[in-house]
Design a protein around this nucleic acid. Structure first.
Lengths: 248, 248
DNA sequence: TTGTAATGATAGTAATACTACTATTAAACA
DNA sequence: TGTTTAATAGTAGTATTACTATCATTACAA
């Protein structure tokens, strides 16, 4: 049985870097018709689509219900996004961009690749680990959506055209960033990209499984998020190191 | 760089066991209204829903299009399945059940757990490795659907009620089966369930990524399925063994 | 011969996913 | 101050989806 190693792992990150931080999260302009982050209605659309998708799931979410909730009209919402798939893609991209920036902050002035890996994993699990308050996005609720339905962004028939439009650049960039840290730990590792994407997916999957399909994971669901995070951290860290350092 | 080890790995499995094999794949009767495997129309529904979902994706697939394709009517299709979600769940369950049975066959009379693991991975990657011709299911096309959209079966808002109905029992049973083999290799391994579910997901993900999102995987897409299978096999085997044998 | 299971045919409804066009307001600019 | 323009609201309408209901037809089984 592998021993727990999360205790005292986390020197508080240097929050001062982010005190007056106003990072703008840049979203591929092909995704929207009108930039929602620039207007009042646009921000209401983002904020309320998140809470409504969280409540209904994307299948049952639609622009009519959204418009009703924000006391606007369908046609107004359609001025921002061609349809709900594009809105969903926007939210996904926002999330992965945001995660990427949080990782950048968490890794600042760090040399030790192993410490970098630890902080990356921590950032993937916990929203509170380096947070930046963006007024028109509820990161915690968005995270729940990503965990539950994020992979649907690319698991469909039109993935190739979406990919041509650059809709997955944020995810791929994040994956690249992680894989470079993995290669710092072992430059001769054969599967850095697969391990990076696996890390991202296994992280979300096991959070989801712990709550909904517990027989698919060894993580025990716990209302105390902190305790569950520690468990998931240990698992992901062990998994990553095992792959990187394994000699046949 | 890890060396390739797939050469001469595969003693031909004992196909004689399956020569006159008539395995019936049992599907939870809560999934359908009328058992489609018992009637002509039912079999047409299964066969053609697979090819049509493959062609359109589940989003654009519907019962009207299916009915047209089989020269039947919507109302007739609705007599078998409450809606397309249930039909999809049926196909998913069929697939995981079928995979489970193929693994059972592949592991017959085997003692060596390492050899068992190899055959499991092989069975997950390749449909042709132990095939059983079921006349009303095109396993290869179904496999493509599972790779592309399989995880959508449980990534939605109503996962808990679906789970209560037992819609994921086949997947969980398969996961359990694999995790027991993993524990044979290392009885003290801490995360057998997570590793089993990860194996299943990473396998499908990397087949999918190789074709559609190559920057998320180290597997090179290859029209020669055999060559790609070998690459994926090596990767999954290395990944599994690394996790099972890693000492902190 | 009668009953019943399986399917087909037709019709209808509520919701979804849009598109189009017009009206109103408010700020910006000349 | 008057005029433009951007942003939004309001209304209406269409095609498709996702069903439900009812009745007719066939076919085989008791």
């Amino acid at each position: 049985m592998q021993e727990k190693n999360y205790l005292n792992l986390w020197p508080e990150p240097n929050y001062s870097i982010m005190k007056n931080l106003s990072v703008t999260i840049n979203i591929n302009s092909d995704i929207y018709l009108k930039d929602p982050s620039t207007t009042e209605l646009g921000k209401k659309i983002l904020l309320n689509s998140i809470t409504l998708i969280d409540k209904l799931g994307i299948e049952d979410f639609n622009f009519k219900k959204l418009a009703q909730r924000i006391s606007s009209t369908e046609s107004s919402v359609y001025r921002y996004f061609e349809n709900k798939h594009y809105l969903f893609i926007y939210l996904i991209n926002w999330y992965w961009n945001w995660t990427s920036i949080r990782i950048d902050i968490a890794l600042q002035n760090l040399q030790d690749p192993d410490e970098k890996l630890k902080r990356i994993i921590k950032a993937l699990i916990e929203n509170s680990f380096i947070n930046m308050d963006v007024p028109f996005i509820d990161e915690e609720v968005l995270h729940r959506i990503i965990v539950r339905e994020g992979t649907k962004a690319y698991h469909h028939k039109t993935v190739d055209t979406d990919n041509d439009y650059g809709f997955f650049l944020a995810y791929k960039a994040l994956c690249k960033k992680i894989s470079l840290v993995l290669l710092e730990i072992n430059p001769r590792y054969a599967y850095p990209k697969t391990l990076a994407s696996t890390l991202l997916e296994v992280c979300n999957n096991n959070i989801y499984f712990a709550k909904h399909l517990p027989r698919l994971t060894d993580i025990k669901y716990n209302n105390d998020i902190k305790a569950m995070s520690n468990e998931i951290f240990d698992m992901l860290y062990a998994m990553t190191k095992a792959n990187l350092l394994y000699k046949q």
